[in-house]
């Protein structure tokens, strides 16, 4: 399993639109991608669960991936978060 930490800089947090984009990105990979905040975690391929985390600006999340393409998944997620969130 691979993981990284990321602190949200987007003033609006993970709101609907980026959540949708994030789900699309996660779905490109076979590995399970999980996003956790304060002990709560959500499957990054599930839109409602992800929005339910209500991640806001300045909060830290842990993004982890587990599966055959976990390296690529982590790299892609990290790039996505930096560019969009």
């Amino acid at each position: 399993m691979k993981e990284f930490k990321y602190t949200l800089t987007d003033p609006e947090g993970i709101h609907a639109r980026p959540a949708g984009e994030l789900v699309k990105k996660a779905k490109e990979f076979e590995s399970a991608v999980t996003i956790s905040k304060d002990g709560k975690s959500a499957d990054a391929k599930r839109l409602f669960a992800l929005m339910g985390l209500a991640v806001k600006q300045g909060q830290e999340v842990v993004v982890s991936a587990e599966g055959p393409d976990e390296d690529a998944a982590i790299e892609a997620m990290s790039e996505f978060m930096k560019a969009n969130l």
Partner: peptide, 16 residues
């Protein structure tokens, strides 16, 4: 318009 794209994704949400 993006909201309608999100709506489509909601209808594809696995938990739902």
């Amino acid at each position: 318009a993006a909201i309608f794209e999100i709506h489509q994704m909601m209808l594809e949400d696995l938990d739902y």
